[in-house]
Amino acid sequence: MEDGAKKELPYDIMENILSRLPVKTLFRFKSVCKSWYATISDDQIFAGVHLRQSRNMSSGKRDVFFWLEKQGPDFWPIVSHQHQFLPKKIESQLDPTVLCYSDGLALRRYHGVDAGIYVLCNLSTGYRVKFACPCPIHHHPHQTVYGIIYDPLINDYKVIVIDNNMRYAVYQCRTETWSALQETNFSWGPLITGKGVSLNGDLYFILKTLEEEEEESRGRIKIVGFDPSRESFVRLPELNYTTKPDFFMFLTCLEGCMYVCINHSCLVIKVVGGKHEEKSWREFEGFPPLSTRRNVDTINWYYPGGDETELDA
């Protein structure tokens, strides 16, 4: 059998190449040899390299998807293709919900009394950092909203937490510092929900306004952007939609597009251009690609005992 010339590459070049591979391929290549196993499993070095580069190619194109699976009396978080991403011992201390996800990082938190302690987990390596939020911010499971976003100016990831009083705090992962608690200054009396979705370097949140002048007493749905470097919110163009908004709505990002889904009918999408003012919406009929994944991303709405049948609608 013709084998072609084999090419032995120096370690640093090989590591650079490996760090560009998706998680699934990396895990498979752990079985190439022992030194590859060690490299791919090395939390400190490799995780950092991998994250930095996965950011460039992710933007929703290579997302990992989560869902909860009932195991006995408990629900366990599952990452795509049945891969469980933390050892059971740690899992049992954490809330099964993935609070938010970006570039291979998932934000979780502890159960109960430790609910103000977060864990940021690198899904490709299992590397995790633990940090507490000192701010007097509320941690209500349905009313606190989270997002992870990369800030290129300081080469760091930021975790943003918004509470039900519309105050927010920003955590810088590398320097391990929290910003002061700030007011969002949303003037439209919004009800923010779901989790932040990152796309092309910005973070987006979905919210329902409670403006009194609205004819539709149930409010209107809006999307706000968050600029990671300026740490400020930007309101995006109005959505045009015909579906009557009910409480159920979510935002997700797949294959480079943003999807706004309301009552399981998917609506208006796509962020165009690099600047907020240039962004526009495109109507979309039907479901986002891979509609099972759409469900996966929404399943964090459903807690143990929640109504799961709705997911199959």
Partner: peptide, 26 residues
């Protein structure tokens, strides 16, 4: 590097060992 990663993405472990001259020490 990105192109090589793209080529490798769906390749088998055996392919990687052959192409990069890596000995299986497991």
């Amino acid at each position: 590097s990105a192109k090589i990663a793209q080529v490798m993405e769906k390749k088998s472990v055996g392919w990687v060992r052959r192409k990069f001259g890596i000995e299986n020490d497991y």
